[in-house]
Design a protein around this nucleic acid. Structure first.
Lengths: 109, 109
DNA sequence: GCCACTACTGTGCATTGCGCAGTAGTGTGC
DNA sequence: GCACACTACTGCGCAATGCACAGTAGTGGC
């Protein structure tokens, strides 16, 4: 299965979860997601997701200068974002449980 | 979170799992998925998925007449389908574990 | 100066789930 | 016999979203 399709609808959740730990800028979020196990996540997907979440009012944003490269656009959760994280996490957990149920019923191969 | 996006890439797996239990026709698969907890799954999505999987060579197909309505197009797994089910299930399980990990690290709200 | 690494933006595409309309067979009630 | 409901499948077009790719820029090493 192409694991990119699995991310559909879940990348938002993953990004929110990472930002809930601590604020981060795009490049940093990409690295943290990859370290967490989402190795195939594309950078453009993360930047796109951040922009989308920000536009939706779930994130705050501030720019910080950097010693080792261009400026960094940091993002952090606001109340809307935390709400979205909580409800998305609940939805995901329920969905994953349903899928686990479906899978465990199959005949042993 | 819109649970329709969560299905992306997973509906194939869910359909394969259901068909692994026992052969089924479109309408029947829709009902079984809904009973399993995927209540919002659209019928057109399932029919589309069945056609796609069949076209990809993962399913067998045979038509059976019915007493209570139109004919039924039954689908069943072949070896390719069982392989795909096994590998997709493994991918999904790993992915779900990664997500669970990501979520459990967040601060308590 | 050239290259590598960091960091972000924009464009266009592919996949896939869904709404909706349409076709068709069977049985029920009037 | 006709309208209607339920079963069952097909086709069309749309929307969401992840990604590849190209482009812009800053910093530092050689």
């Amino acid at each position: 299965m192409d694991s990119t399709q699995l991310l559909k609808g879940v990348l938002d959740l993953a990004v929110l979860a990472v930002l809930d730990e601590r604020d981060g800028y795009g490049y940093d979020v990409v690295r943290r997601l990859r370290e967490a196990g989402l190795e195939d996540v594309g950078d453009a997907s993360v930047y796109g997701t951040l922009r989308r979440l920000f536009k939706a009012g779930a994130l705050t944003s501030y720019v910080v200068a950097s010693d080792e490269g261009p400026h960094r656009k940091y993002y952090g959760l606001n109340d809307v974002g935390r709400d979205q994280l909580a409800s998305s996490a609940a939805t995901w957990t329920a969905f994953a449980a349903t899928m686990a149920d479906l899978l465990k019923e199959r005949r042993p191969s």
